[in-house]
């Protein structure tokens, strides 16, 4: 569900404190709605005014994130039972924090000691390697010390946005062998910003966002606390 406000006055008049107060009270009202999670979008000129104090909205807090991870892991086990022919592969660099957690929860549920779990870097497979103004990325490590030949592969990434990362990941994956199937698990699905026909099989939370917004996933191990925030 999207809420938008439109104001028919020149930008200069919007700076009036009264209007800013109006904006913030709408935001406050919208953020009190629990379900479905509303995303508030503003016209660009208002967004510009609000940029000075960056707006954060928590999509998942510590507790909600934990419940979501448990659910995702249980869904995986539901479909793959003992993980006999299934492997988990996290996408570097940000997907591995999620895949670390998922792999740990799955092995706790199934009581299996060693679920094959690898990390995949996709730097050399990106389609924007030589885009103008793009710096060359120095890759993170790839670490897949098992065969994926004829295995059911679960690709794991934190945020699904344009779908281009997943496209690269599938190309990279196939250089390691021919998997029986590939599924995609993501924590956040930004569903209306896809540029390629790619859909996730397991989703933590679906959000509707515009391209200028950013979704940030924070992990305790790395950022000090578990949460998912939307930045306007």
């Amino acid at each position: 569900m999207q809420y938008a406000i439109g104001i028919k006055y020149p930008v200069s008049t919007i700076q009036h404190p009264g209007i800013l107060n109006l904006v913030s009270s709408i935001k406050h009202h919208v953020s009190s709605i629990q379900h479905p999670t509303p995303i508030l979008t503003f016209r660009p000129e208002i967004l510009f005014l609000l940029k000075s104090h960056v707006q954060l909205k928590t999509l998942l807090d510590n507790k909600q994130l934990d419940i979501t991870l448990q659910r995702l892991a249980h869904q995986l086990v539901e479909n793959h039972l003992q993980f006999k022919d299934t492997v988990i592969i996290g996408i570097q660099p940000r997907g591995i924090w999620l895949s670390d957690r998922i792999a740990a929860i799955v092995s706790r549920i199934t009581k299996a000691k060693d679920i094959p779990y690898g990390k995949l870097d996709i730097t050399f497979y990106r389609d924007d390697v030589h885009q103008a103004g793009q710096e060359m990325n120095v890759p993170s490590s790839t670490n897949i010390d098992f065969s994926i030949e004829n295995k059911d592969v679960i690709l794991v990434d934190d945020v699904l946005h344009t779908g281009r990362t997943i496209r690269s990941a599938m190309d990279a994956l196939i250089d390691f062998g021919r998997p029986k199937s590939v599924e995609l698990l993501v924590l956040i699905d930004r569903r209306f910003s896809r540029e390629l026909p790619i859909q996730p099989d397991y989703v933590g939370q679906t959000v509707d966002t515009i391209i200028t917004q950013k979704v940030k996933v924070h992990w305790k191990e790395k950022d000090g606390k578990d949460e998912v925030v939307l930045i306007d």
Partner: peptide, 21 residues
Amino acid sequence: FRTADNFKQVLQRQIKKVPAL
């Protein structure tokens, strides 16, 4: 060196090739 570490890994795979260039 850090980039070469990665390429060394690529060279140990069955398919010793990446499509970057």
